[in-house]
Every structure is written in C-alpha cells, then in structure tokens.
Design a protein around this nucleic acid. Structure first.
Lengths: 308, 308
DNA sequence: ATCCTGTCATAATTATTAATTATACCACCC
DNA sequence: GGGTGGTATAATTAATAATTATGACAGGAT
C-alpha cells in the first residue's frame, strides 16, 4: 500500500517538482508542455494517494504546505539521483574508443559488416579495430587493446574473461560458376585437379591444402591426389576470398568468415564434411571492468551463438 | 531528451530494481504481481531509451552489466528517498491529535457535522475538540490548543496566523410551524408579542434580544415593543436552538450556526434584515508550523469561504 | 543424441491510465 | 460589477501498459 504510493510519486515527481517550484499549476503545465487540467488532475491524484493535501489553493496559484514541501524536496532529490547516475552511465561510454585487436580476415569478413548493428544498440561507443598478421599478436606500440579476438587454442570452459566464439571449421568453397564449370568434386582426386587458392605465411597456425588433404584421407596410398593441383598463393585471407568469389579457384573457407558469402550464394561449399580442430576464435577481455568492453563482449557472444 | 529518460526511469524504477536484485525477469514479475512479458517489455523499453543494454542475457535469468548496476543503484536510492519522505510526512500526522479550542455552539452546530469530510481528506489526523463557555477562553490545564475558533473582535486583515472565518450576522429564526401559527412578523411589535428564546450568561459578548430590538429600531419612542414578550432562557446555544426547532419560540440565529437548519428547512428566518457587528468567529493557529494545524486551517478557511 | 524444462522475446489484443477540449467556478483588482 | 488570471470538473479521446498466446533458446537429464 505504501509501496504503491512511493512508485506513484516516483512517476509523477516531475509534475510535483515543477508545480511546487513555480507555485502555479498553469505555469508548471506550460513548462512541461502539457495542459493545466492535466497537472491539476495529477496533483489531485497524488494528494488522494498520499491521503492529504499538499498544496494550499490561494487566490492566484497555489502554495505548498509543510507535507508538500517535504515531498517536493524528496522528489527533486530523487530525480537528481537518477539524472546523475544517467549522466555518469552515458559519459562512461562517450568519447572513449574501444580498442579491438583481431586478425585481418576476421575483421574484414565478419566483424566490420556487423559493427553498424552494435552502433545501433550502443550509440556513442566508438570501435577502433587493430589488425595484426603476426602470430604472436601484439597491438601497435603505445595502444593497449581492450578486447582481442584471435585465432588460437580454444578455451573449453568460459573463464572469467576468455571465451571461445567459434571453433575452427573449414570447408572448401568456390564460386557457383567455378563449381559449374569445373565440378562436380566428389572425390579428393577431383579436388586435386582443381585450382587451389593458398594462403601464404601462416602455415603453422592455419590449415593449408596439404593439411586438408592429409586429414580428409589419412590413407597414405592416395596421398598423391593433389600432386597435379595448380596452386595460387595470396598474402592475406580477404584477398584470397575475393579471388575465389571471382571464380578463380577453390579456397579453404573458415566458418564464420565465409558465412555471409555462403548465405548470399556468392560462394558455395564443394565438400560437405567439415574439417575441425581444437583451435578457434577466442575472445579475450583485457579490461573486463570497462563497461564498453562489457557491452561489446556481451554483444559479440550473443551474436556468435545466434549464428552457429 | 535526457530529461525524458530521467523521468521514464523514475516511473519504472520499481521494475528495474526488482529485476536487478533478483537477476530474473520472471521472479521480478512474480514479486511485483505482474506477468513476465510486462517486465521484459519494460526493461526492453528502458534499454532503448537509455541507449544501451543494462542486462546481460544468460542461460537462466539475467545479470546486470556495469551500466545497469549504476542505474539500479540509483533507482533504489531514489525510491528510498521518496519512501523516507513519505513515512516522515505521514508519521507527522499520525498518532498525534490536533487540539481545537472553540465554543460549544460552534462545535455542536457547525464543526462536528463537517469533521467527517476533513477525516476523509486527511485520514489519520485526529481532531480533539475542547469547548469552553468562559469569556476569557482558556483550554483545560495541561493541554494547549493548536488552533482556536473563538467569537471575538474580527481581524480585518488575514495576519500570519489569525483570520476571520465568519463575521457576526444575526437573524431571528423559528420553526416553520411556529411561524405559521404565530406569524407573520412584519413589525417589531409583532416580534415583541412572541415567545423569545434567550441565552443566559453571555450578555456582554453575544447579542441579546434587548440588543437586537435596540439596534433594529434606535428610535426610543417605540422602545417598549418587547415589553409584553414572553422570554424563556437557556444555558447554552444548542439547547436554545433545539427549543426553537421544536416550535417553542423565536431564537436569535447566528449565521454559520443556523445555516444547515435553514437549508434543511427545520428553521426559517422571520426577519430578513440581518444584524451585523465587528465581531465574528476568528481562527487562530497557535502552532502554525505544525503540518496538522496547517492542513486543518487550510480546510477550515476554504470551507468558510465556500459557505458564505 | 534427443527430449524436457525453465527462461527470455515477440506479436496481437485488451485494459488501464493519462491528456485534451470545453466549461464552470472563484477571488481579487480596477 | 465586469474583467482577469488562476483552479476544478466532466466527457471524450489518445496513449500507454498489461495480458494472453506463442516462439526460441540453452542447458541438464534420460
């Protein structure tokens, strides 16, 4: 019962405060952009739930009585409390950038296209992406990353500030046109005769075509299948994917990175069985206490789960 | 724009607080006696107006993020502020009686019948009426009156804590039956032959029939008109009025005291021209800082103006 | 693996609450 | 005694919030 009164007052604190301060319902209505009867009725309702008058009706305007003064003061204080907290909450996420460290492929083929969505949910948080190609990923000197999304050994249990977003999952992909003209690829030998697009320089972190053939068919007798393949090498993954989309050959497609291309039909799988590993994209929060980092990580985790 | 957000949060602080504290929308809904979708939608709306998520959606239930914690803490604090003020405001008017000093006539014939209305407007304020018959009105020993309504010299300008509620105004009145059988009373002589009901013991404060005849017709030649009148005396005014209502004669009717009787037709005026003076019922607030006294006086003044 | 369970999200409808327009009323001041 | 500047009330309309019904999801149990 008294609880209801508290919350009713909370909701109408604005009107109460204005009427008390200005000593006039009409003036309060004008200030709040509403009509005088609206204010009159709200105050009347407040007085009814409180159980006693708060204003003394004078010839021109109104004046607070003792009880009214108490409640108006409390209402002002309560509003100030909320306003301060709100300013603090929004200030903490304004004019500060969140530094995200990740690799070029993840940034270009997954993250960037989804950032506008985050911008919409959390306006005012600026994301700065730092990309690295190095194995031992380090942000540029003088800048510390708040969160990183790096391809490394997957963490099994979501720890304090580390969680695996995507476990590694690889399919050979190419453009529909290439599949039509050079396919179908039903055996490993079919693939061995195709144009295989290759990523240079990261052989001990990322799967190569050699790895793929080896794991798909561990039988050494057939191991020669890719001998006749024509390789073409690229320096980074987006470039390689671009080439595949233009129908220049077959690429190894990493799961989250090629998802949008597969959905839009720009690329197609040519081999259904995925190649999996114990590695994956791992999200690490280096400044987990930061509210921007918290919001960004929460958004990322939700998004990754939705797209599995 | 931020103003709207503040007031929206004020209005929904209850839901925000419960959801944050319990870590579950369903539990919050149960506690607040509403349905889960209602809570879900309210929180969703809050997050939209704030511009960023406040809760992290977990498998079972939800958890506050940094921004959410800030706002929930502020919401709790704001509600506590209002609650405290409200308890203070209601406590000040509970378990304390307001001592009202007045005379027996005013209490019996005007105040008492209107007290239930005040009780309805300000529940919890107990009115204790102290009546006096003495000229120099003093409350009983050991009790101090918070407000007094006494018949005395009228104050012309509403001072700090004194105001004239009713100026003296006197009409001869009797029951309709008496007027029918003994009337009409068109001249002073008609009245002089009637049964005149008289109040004993207050001759220098209240008008007597002698005063009335003297003021109505200052011409000394006709002054003998009431010589033949039959007087009957009473110890207090309500008793006298009771007698008049039963058709036993004509009473001097004081304005506010006989109003209800005149309206209901139990009594009728037998002489239109009123007798006025510079005296009247004066309201004095002896403890003007008390909120009960303030509420009571405000109510009294409004009521007296309405019934003029 | 697959079902089961407890939770949040969403859509459409209904119910409740608040605001508006129009009007009455009241008290002072000229 | 009207004019003026304020509040109160009634009836209607507009806006907001709650409900019911349903879907989706993640984890634990079988």
């Amino acid at each position: 019962m008294t609880g209801y009164i508290v919350d009713y007052l909370m909701g109408n604190a604005r009107v109460l405060e204005a009427a008390g301060r200005l000593g006039s319902f009409s003036a309060a209505a004008a200030e709040l952009g509403m009509t005088q009867p609206a204010v009159s009725q709200q105050i009347g309702h407040i007085e009814r739930v409180v159980g006693m008058p708060l204003f003394m009706r004078r010839h021109r305007g109104v004046a607070l009585n003792e009880v009214g003064r108490t409640l108006v003061a409390a209402a002002s204080e309560a509003r100030a409390t909320i306003r301060t907290a709100l300013e603090q909450a929004t200030a903490v996420s304004r004019d500060r950038v969140l530094n995200v460290l990740t690799d070029y492929g993840f940034a270009a083929n997954w993250l960037i296209s989804r950032l506008p969505d985050f911008e919409k949910i959390c306006p005012g948080i600026k994301i700065q992406i730092l990309t690295t190609q190095a194995l031992q990923a380090q942000p540029p000197l003088g800048i510390t990353a708040d969160v990183s999304i790096l391809f490394e050994a997957a963490v099994r249990k979501s720890g304090e500030n580390r969680i695996t977003l995507f476990e590694e999952e690889v399919y050979p992909v190419c453009s529909p046109a290439y599949a039509r003209t050079h396919g179908p690829f039903t055996t490993l030998a079919d693939l061995g005769r195709a144009h295989l697009l290759h990523l240079n320089g990261h052989e001990n972190l990322w799967f190569t075509w050699t790895d793929w053939f080896a794991r798909m068919d561990p039988d050494p007798s057939v191991r020669g299948s890719q001998q006749t393949a024509r390789f073409r090498a690229f320096g980074n993954y987006p470039l390689l994917l671009q080439s595949a989309m233009q129908g220049e050959g077959i690429a190894l497609g990493w799961r989250p990175l090629v998802d949008t291309c597969l959905e839009s039909g720009v690329l197609v799988k040519v081999w259904q069985k995925p190649l999996r590993s114990r590695r994956g994209y791992v999200l690490t929060a280096h400044t987990p206490r930061s509210s921007q980092a918290e919001l960004f990580c929460d958004w990322l985790v939700n998004l990754s789960r939705m797209s599995i």
